[in-house]
């Protein structure tokens, strides 16, 4: 038994999506996304819930969830910074941006601040090569990064620091 459940909004969304695919199994990624938006991450409890909904084994759901980089199987900070590290961004100075972010947040890549406000990750090509360097702040792209721009954006965020 899992204690996790969709909120009513996701329940409705899930049912509406069922109509749009020839097989229920297609709802695997959409369901994992719904969990992640509802909870911030995907717990084993939520995986059991999805397995039941899709009539698959929990292991099957877990194997899919763990395959995709964007699914968080551990809690992350309120603000998840995902800095692109791939070639075009590197050529345009992403390493300096990385150092600046580490300095500013006081954490290294892969870490979360002790107050759970920020997580810093390096990610692969975000498709912003013409506006490099680039990062995502949760779901928002921030492009042509400079230390000044980072100051401006991070200092303007609403957090409990």
């Amino acid at each position: 038994m899992s204690r996790f459940g969709f909120n009513w909004e996701n329940e409705e969304k899930f049912d509406a999506l069922l109509e749009r695919y020839p097989d229920k199994q297609s709802l695997m990624l959409p369901a994992l996304w719904m969990v992640q938006y509802q909870e911030g991450w995907i717990s084993l409890d939520a995986i059991r819930f999805i397995a039941k909904k899709l009539e698959r084994t929990p292991m099957e759901v877990y194997s899919v969830a763990s395959f995709y980089t964007m699914f968080q199987l551990q809690p992350v900070g309120k603000y998840h910074i995902q800095l692109c590290r791939t070639l075009s961004c590197m050529l345009c100075g992403s390493k300096n941006i990385q150092e600046y972010l580490q300095y500013k947040l006081g954490i290294k890549v892969g870490e979360t601040t002790p107050d759970r406000q920020f997580t810093l990750s390096l990610v692969e090509c975000l498709g912003s090569c013409g506006t490099a360097p680039c990062m995502r702040l949760n779901d928002t792209y921030i492009e042509n990064l400079t230390p000044e721009k980072i100051d401006e954006i991070l200092d303007g965020l609403c957090h409990d620091r």
Partner: peptide
């Protein structure tokens, strides 16, 4: 219908994409 991927480069390969669309690993 829009189907949202989840950060796997290989899903740009058409058969991996279809596997992913079927709810499996890419």
């Amino acid at each position: 219908t829009i189907h949202k991927g989840a950060g796997a480069y290989i899903c740009g390969e058409k058969t991996a994409l279809l596997e992913s669309l079927e709810g499996k690993r890419g």
